[in-house]
């Protein structure tokens, strides 16, 4: 009779990190489906390719670091990083773009920092920003919504060839930036004439919202980050829109354009690089949303989820410093990291 000798508790909820990560991947599927529907097979190809690259890089570096490869691959964290980056890339992205972005994300932003749990920055967003700065043209070319290329053309684009037809067109965010202040011109743009925001993009965002709600329902994420994120984005948009509707887009347009929902439910909720306490996470996400609105409205880039998330990743320890919860039996919360 050999008895197990283990510390308490002796029972557990029987979840594991791999299962949590898989739930995140499942929750992205509606968004991926709408992306394929609106922009062609490119997104799916990108995601699959990104997963392959990520697992390979992760395995190589785990081996180099002398870690058990299979044990760590089972945590599915590399897959999540790859899927999120693959979803964020334009559907027209060629294979090498994905390779560079995902490789950098896994190797530099994650493994070189010590692997899962040790990275101060969101790896997918590091990869995304690297690509956006290095290959701005390739990273801002999107297919016009509803004008999805045929699977063969998508494959050609993925393989880095230029198909006969040109598919690229401006995104709603691009368009609004270009014509901001000119009410007449804005009214004449089809790309802005959706129910909530631009057609196609609003569908993508709705799909990610759906996935996000699934994560909330499964308690994979808590409400603080998505709610604060969306509030931080929508509130300034609402105020500015009231002041000058032609120059500032409305809150719904902001919420359902670009990477807003993907960012709110899937990117900013990455717990490793986020702030810690409930209040801390709320502040963290609120500032991300605010920063996105500022960059979208006044900055040089049409969308800003990646920049905003990375900047707040930097600020997360500082936020933690001031947002320790009040512990039981204490009259007030401790502030600061040291006594």
């Amino acid at each position: 009779m050999s008895l197990i000798n283990a510390p308490s508790p002796h029972t557990s909820r029987h979840t594991d990190t791999g299962a949590v990560m898989r739930q995140v991947v499942y929750a992205t599927l509606p968004g991926l489906a709408v992306l394929v529907w609106q922009f062609g097979l490119g997104s799916l190809l990108n995601v699959l390719w990104a997963v392959l690259v990520a697992l390979t890089c992760e395995a190589l570096f785990l081996r180099a670091r002398g870690k058990p490869v299979a044990f760590y691959l089972k945590d599915w964290s590399a897959v999540v990083t790859a899927v999120l980056l693959g979803l964020a890339l334009p559907s027209t992205a060629p294979w090498w773009l994905t390779l560079i972005g995902v490789g950098f994300a896994i190797v530099v932003a994650k493994q070189l920092y010590g692997g899962l749990g040790m990275n101060p920055f969101n790896p997918a967003m590091i990869g995304y920003v690297l690509l956006l700065i290095s290959f701005p043209v390739a990273m801002t070319q999107w297919v016009a919504p509803g004008d999805a290329p045929a699977p063969a053309d998508s494959l050609a684009l993925f393989l880095g060839q230029t198909p006969a037809d040109a598919f690229t067109g401006a995104t709603p965010l691009d368009t609004f930036r270009t014509w901001a202040g000119d009410a007449e011109a804005l009214a004449g743009r089809d790309i802005l004439a959706g129910r909530l925001a631009g057609p196609g993009w609003e569908a993508v965002n709705l799909a990610f919202l759906l996935g996000g709600l699934y994560l909330l329902a499964r308690r994979i994420i808590t409400w603080q980050i998505p709610v604060a994120f969306l509030a931080g984005l929508a509130l300034p948009a609402l105020i500015a829109h009231q002041v000058d509707a032609a120059r500032f887009a409305g809150p719904l347009f902001h919420l359902f354009s670009g990477g807003a929902m993907l960012g709110a439910f899937f990117i900013a909720t990455d717990p490793v690089s986020a702030a810690t306490s409930r209040l801390g996470r709320f502040i963290y996400a609120l500032l991300i949303g605010l920063l996105i609105w500022v960059i979208r409205t006044f900055g040089g880039y049409p969308d800003a989820v990646a920049f905003a998330v990375l900047l707040l990743n930097l600020a997360a320890p500082f936020i933690d410093y001031y947002t320790q919860p009040r512990a039981y039996g204490h009259r007030k919360a401790n502030k600061g990291a040291n006594p």
């Binding site: 594991d16 990190t17 949590v20 945590d75 692997g115 899962l116 808590t222 717990p271 512990a327």
Partner: peptide, 16 residues
């Protein structure tokens, strides 16, 4: 496994 700071523990801590 590695801690991913998911915060599930903080959600259930009765001592906050």
């Amino acid at each position: 496994q590695a801690c991913i700071r998911c915060g599930a523990c903080a959600e259930v801590c009765p001592a906050n």
